[in-house]
Simulated scan of single mutants.
Amino acid sequence: MTTTTAPALLVLEDGRTFRGRAYGAAGETFGEAVFATGMTGYQETLTDPSYHRQVVVMTAPHIGNTGVNDEDPESRRIWVAGYVVRDPARTPSNWRSRRSLDEELAAQGVVGISGVDTRALTRHLRERGAMRAGIFSGEALARPGDEASLLARVLAAPPMTGAHLAPEVATTEPYVIPADGERRFTVAAIDLGIKGMTPRRMAERGIEVHVLPATATLEQIYATGPDGVFLSNGPGDPAAADHPVAVTRGVLDRGTPLFGICFGNQILGRALGFGTFKLKYGHRGINQPVKDLTTGKVEVTAHNHGFAVDAPLDAASDTPFGRVAVSHVCLNDNVVEGLRLLDRPAFSVQYHPEAAAGPHDAAYLFDRFVSLMEGERA
């Protein structure tokens, strides 16, 4: 265990502060403070590239109980900018655990804080909205009474609005995830911050996945000979991601089956001509209710997004690529959670059907993608 009793301080951009103890690495870090409501799956949250440049507040009070293993990371590293917990586990206990969570945070240089009243902090973020924050501990923690200088440093950090972050987390070189068993289809996956579980869910269905950098051109996409194109999840403001939008329009022009998840849903929305906007505090967790408007079914789903598509819920919209309908909606706040093209083989959802560590209510969406590719092949 590396947890210490050294003091630490969380400073929000509106001036509110929370005191606690250093957790993970000592030092300083800056990012957008957001809260995640999942009671499990903290390792998948930490390694999700969509959390790049965010200080994640865990609403579940006990974190680290199952330690850290080498099987569940969603990417090659921890991406969160900072980590805020209430009661870290004193001793992890799980048959797959290899080390404690705070040891992993320290090894990867992630600055965290524990002992924080995360209930009060979450209520504050719900009322005031997600905002910039800084965590300070060790030598980075200024002398008592010098919080004004720390606040100034928080205010100097860049906001999430306008941030183009996908190239910072995406692969720089293409790679291939082979199909499990016989290859039935080939998919070109644009890595905007892809999670490791996503190509595995496709591989399970006989899909060979060619993962391409966020900067991939239309020519590079079609050089893979794709039966379908996939737009991944990822961090940042979709309004700043012009290149993926242009590429998506090229895919739609060719009529290739297309599926997008999370950030990919926002990119598709922009490609169709819809706007996007920043949510007050976003959806993050593995317990969000979503209604599939095509079936009437309500699913419990995993979310991680701070932006959303601005599209009408009550009627199909005419776009340069035909009619488009909202296919899914969040039952908590009526935010658009999915788009479906009525005249072309393309759809997207705002949440995560690959859902590590769960739930798996929406796994059928990968089968829907397969059906689109089967239809085009027929």
Rank of each mutant, 00 (worst) to 15 (best):
Y175I: 02
L218P: 04
A156M: 05
Y175V: 06
F274G: 10
G193I: 02
P167H: 09
A239S: 15
T248I: 04
E168D: 15
V187K: 08
R205H: 01
Y175K: 01
G206Q: 05
A163K: 00
F185M: 07
P167L: 06
E168R: 15
I177Y: 04
P213L: 01
V245T: 15
A271K: 03
I261T: 11
H283L: 13
M202Q: 13
Y281T: 13
P174I: 00
A223K: 07
G269D: 12
N265M: 12
I267L: 09
T171K: 00
C262I: 01
V251P: 07
T224N: 05
R249C: 06
G264W: 00
A271G: 07
V211F: 08
I261W: 03
A214W: 03
S149T: 14
V245E: 10
I207D: 11
H243K: 11
E219V: 10
D242F: 09
T224W: 06
P238E: 13
L150H: 07
V187F: 10
R270C: 06
D191P: 04
A203L: 12
P158T: 08
V229W: 07
L150V: 07
V247N: 08
D191A: 02
T248G: 01
A157I: 11
M202H: 10
Y281M: 13
R200V: 14
K278F: 05
T276L: 08
P213S: 01
D180Y: 14
I261R: 02
T161K: 15
M160W: 11
M160E: 15
A239K: 13
